[in-house]
């Protein structure tokens, strides 16, 4: 508790201000969502995919940006959520999209807990390697259990019912898009509450100095495990959204590449800030859509060059650098 009070005074931002920022964030997301809907009515599938990946990147930000755990295996939760939602529909006939999403959330959270128990045993490089080993293990398991997951052919036969029995999932993806925007908004508001809570502060403290947190009487591992479960649930939501909107689940959802890309998006936008995660996802996915359509290998080279450039010139990411710039300017004008 002392810690929470301390950090809040250090950060020195009054509560009302952050509430206004929350509202602004929600408004910005809503404006972007509306703009996407109006500007690209033919490309709603891509926009929905951006929404689901944005949930994954937000989840990754929770553990990497706020807790300082470097992981290359976060797609495990995304994939678990996607497969859970898909299996509920394809094998059990539970086609209500809300129930499917709930299934994805639960599966993601369970996977998060499982991975946390293993990941938190090590630190540094071994931890990173554990995360990689875990994502490969999940991938192989999904590949092996092909009677459940469809193996490398992917899981098909997902038929979500209309949302609330009213809005049917149409061919053009209108419903899926609004469903995704709603999920993202809810997740965003909840996560803003989480990262601002004393628990969120504790996690930031663990990132700065775990030894000191332990000396203060809190258990870093318990807090990190809790954050992992939350993060898994958020990523699982993204997975469920992707399963519901595309009506297939491919093995790619559980791949190392998906995890690495999520990390790239997060760093591009800026770690340790929910806005950064969203901005990074949006920029990366749009960029990818245009460039990789031309040549997938040039795309890889460009991502590489982009990464090197971000590390060298904008270590805080695009959002972080821009925010720092405006803060400086604001102070200079004052």
């Amino acid at each position: 508790m002392t810690l929470a009070v301390n950090t809040q005074t250090i950060l020195g931002r009054p509560r009302g201000g952050s509430f206004r920022r929350d509202l602004m964030g929600v408004a910005v997301i809503a404006v972007f969502a509306a703009a996407g809907y109006i500007l690209f009515p033919d490309n709603l599938a891509l926009l929905t995919r951006i929404l689901s990946v944005a949930l994954l990147v937000l989840a990754l930000d929770l553990v990497t940006g706020y807790c300082g755990v470097a992981t290359l295996g976060h797609a495990a939760f995304f994939g678990s959520g996607a497969y859970a939602a898909g299996i509920l529909s394809a094998h059990y006939g539970i086609n209500d999209p809300l129930l499917m999403t709930l299934g994805g959330i639960v599966a993601g959270a369970v996977a998060g807990l499982l991975c946390a128990v293993i990941m938190l045993r090590a630190h540094g490089l071994p931890q990173l390697v554990l995360s990689i080993a875990l994502i490969y293990l999940f991938h192989e398991l999904a590949n092996k259990a092909s009677s459940w997951t469809g193996g490398s052919d992917g899981l098909s036969g997902i038929m979500p019912d209309p949302v609330f029995g009213l809005y049917e999932f149409d061919l053009f993806g209108h419903t899926a898009y609004f469903f995704g925007v709603a999920l993202l908004l809810i997740a965003f508001v909840l996560l803003r509450l989480v990262v601002r809570s004393p628990f969120g502060m504790l996690c930031r403290g663990i990132k700065e100095d775990p030894l000191r947190i332990r000396a203060m009487g809190a258990s870093p591992n318990a807090a990190l495990a809790k954050m992992y479960v939350i993060s898994g649930a958020v990523a699982g939501t993204g997975g469920a959204l992707s399963a519901i909107s595309t009506q297939v689940v491919a093995l790619d959802a559980l791949s190392f590449t998906q995890s690495a890309e999520a990390l790239v998006m997060l760093v591009l936008g800026g770690t340790g800030s929910l806005f950064g995660a969203l901005a990074g996802t949006l920029i990366f996915m749009l960029f990818e859509d245009y460039v990789s359509a031309a040549n997938p290998f040039h795309w890889l080279t460009m991502v590489g060059a982009l990464l090197i450039a971000v590390v060298l010139f904008a270590p805080k990411g695009i959002y972080g650098t821009a925010a720092a710039y405006f803060t400086r300017r604001g102070e200079a004008n004052r």
Partner: peptide
């Protein structure tokens, strides 16, 4: 920090693969 190193070296890897 490790995250920076991971990103930089993954970036180098991607570039080399593309080239």
């Amino acid at each position: 920090p490790e995250l920076t190193q991971v990103l930089m070296t993954i970036g180098i890897t991607f570039c080399i693969i593309g080239i």
